[in-house]
Amino acid sequence: MTSCHIAEEHIQKVAIFGGTHGNELTGVFLVKHWLENGAEIQRTGLEVKPFITNPRAVKKCTRYIDCDLNRIFDLENLGKKMSEDLPYEVRRAQEINHLFGPKDSEDSYDIIFDLHNTTSNMGCTLILEDSRNNFLIQMFHYIKTSLAPLPCYVYLIEHPSLKYATTRSIAKYPVGIEVGPQPQGVLRADILDQMRKMIKHALDFIHHFNEGKEFPPCAIEVYKIIEKVDYPRDENGEIAAIIHPNLQDQDWKPLHPGDPMFLTLDGKTIPLGGDCTVYPVFVNEAAYYEKKEAFAKTTKLTLNAKSIRCCLH
């Protein structure tokens, strides 16, 4: 018999989150649709729960009410004593943790798909938090293969000092899905179709896995975050240069030392320094102006996964 890495157990509980950011409308629209008619997301033997994560922000069509829901799922915020004085999103995070967690427990949901849009030209993107997770690498390989020839990129946010504390991190297997470009507060049919297909293929993978299909060893190309880059700023902290036209919409493309990065209003080009080629992502993302992030630098690498098969009882 072929030796293989056996994944822990079959997958039982899956959640699909929309509206973690209330103005990213593809996930909101799909989740609302699936709450009314969820036939397309159901798979035999699998509990799939669509869920609106930040209903107040969705109602106002804004990213958040008090603070970013997708950055506060750490033990400090989840452990705060519940009171009306807490920011709305912290209270909501505790409610979500109660419903789908608790985080880092045996009772937490197996998989959470968190649906997002970006204003950046990132196409279909899967966000991975753990480079050693054979199950998710296999799932992402399946999704990428199923979507081809449509490109699907994998963004690895594993980093020693950049801690995200994402909404989906309460699950055993957290999956971020990011599709763009799409303006905030807008629905685009092409973007919706791409996100819908990503979810379909992900659920198909889980179904095949649960039925005992063995997935042979595989490898995927990923883009691992190195650092986030702020806009150049003046002495008052105001933005002093904008994304250069040569960099705009060039997510995932190589940016070499000396290539144009920013452009000042008086026409001066600010190039990339250093001696390493990087791959920019979230270029000129609207939501990241407040976070002082013009783009993120990534490096390209390959992740390998062992063969996996479900432990059938």
Rank of each mutant, 00 (worst) to 15 (best):
T2F: 08
T2K: 09
S3T: 08
S3R: 15
C4E: 12
E9L: 14
H10A: 06
Q12V: 11
K13P: 02
A15I: 02
A15P: 01
A15F: 03
I16E: 02
I16G: 02
G19L: 03
H21R: 09
G22N: 07
E24P: 00
G27K: 01
F29R: 08
F29I: 11
L30A: 03
K32D: 09
K32R: 09
K32Q: 13
W34R: 01
W34P: 01
W34Q: 02
W34V: 02
L35W: 07
L35Y: 11
N37W: 06
E40G: 03
R43W: 00
G45Y: 04
L46F: 15
E47C: 06
E47Y: 12
E47I: 11
E47L: 09
K49D: 12
P50L: 06
I52R: 00
I52A: 03
T53A: 15
T53P: 06
R56G: 09
R63F: 05
Y64T: 07
Y64N: 10
I65K: 06
D66R: 05
C67A: 10
D68T: 05
D68L: 03
R71I: 10
D74S: 12
L75T: 11
E76Y: 09
N77W: 12
L78C: 12
K81R: 06
S83H: 07
Y88A: 07
V90W: 11
R91V: 12
A93T: 06
A93I: 13
Q94Y: 12
Q94T: 15
Q94M: 08
I96S: 06
N97Y: 15
H98N: 12
L99D: 12
K103D: 15
K103A: 06
S105R: 11
S108I: 15
Y109I: 14
D110Y: 00
D110M: 02
I111P: 01
F113Q: 01
D114Q: 04
T119E: 11
S120H: 01
S120K: 03
S120Q: 01
M122L: 11
C124S: 07
T125K: 02
I127L: 11
I127C: 06
L128T: 03
L128F: 06
L128M: 12
L128Q: 03
S131L: 06
S131G: 13
N133G: 01
F135A: 00
F135N: 00
L136N: 04
F140G: 04
H141R: 06
Y142H: 07
I143E: 01
T145I: 13
T145H: 12
A148Y: 11
A148F: 08
P149V: 03
L150V: 12
C152Y: 00
Y153H: 14
Y155K: 12
L156E: 04
L156I: 06
I157H: 10
I157W: 10
E158F: 01
H159V: 14
P160K: 09
P160T: 11
S161L: 10
Y164S: 10
Y164R: 08
A171W: 03
A171Q: 02
Y173D: 03
P174C: 12
P174G: 15
P174L: 11
V175F: 01
G176W: 10
Q182D: 01
P183M: 04
P183W: 03
Q184F: 13
V186C: 15
V186D: 00
L187M: 10
L192C: 13
Q194P: 08
M195S: 12
M195A: 10
K197S: 15
A202K: 00
L203H: 01
L203G: 00
D204Q: 01
F205N: 01
F205G: 00
I206V: 15
G212Q: 05
G212P: 00
K213W: 09
P216N: 05
P216A: 07
P217R: 06
C218V: 15
A219H: 07
I220T: 05
I220D: 01
I220M: 13
I220V: 09
E221K: 04
K224I: 03
E227I: 02
E227S: 07
E227K: 06
K228F: 15
Y231A: 02
P232G: 00
P232R: 01
D234M: 15
D234Y: 08
E238H: 12
I239D: 01
I239Q: 10
A240S: 11
Q248M: 07
Q250A: 07
Q250H: 08
Q250I: 02
D251V: 01
D251S: 03
K253T: 09
F262Y: 03
L263T: 07
L263E: 14
D266Y: 05
D266M: 06
I270D: 02
P271I: 10
L272N: 12
L272M: 14
G274L: 03
D275C: 14
C276P: 04
C276S: 13
Y279P: 00
Y279F: 10
P280K: 00
V281I: 08
V281T: 14
V283D: 01
V283P: 01
N284C: 05
N284L: 03
A287T: 11
A287Y: 10
Y288T: 14
Y289Q: 15
E290H: 11
K292Y: 08
F295P: 01
F295S: 01
A296R: 10
K297R: 07
T298G: 07
T299F: 11
K300C: 06
K300W: 03
L301W: 15
A305V: 04
A305C: 06
K306T: 09
K306G: 12
K306P: 14
I308Q: 04
C311R: 10
H313N: 10
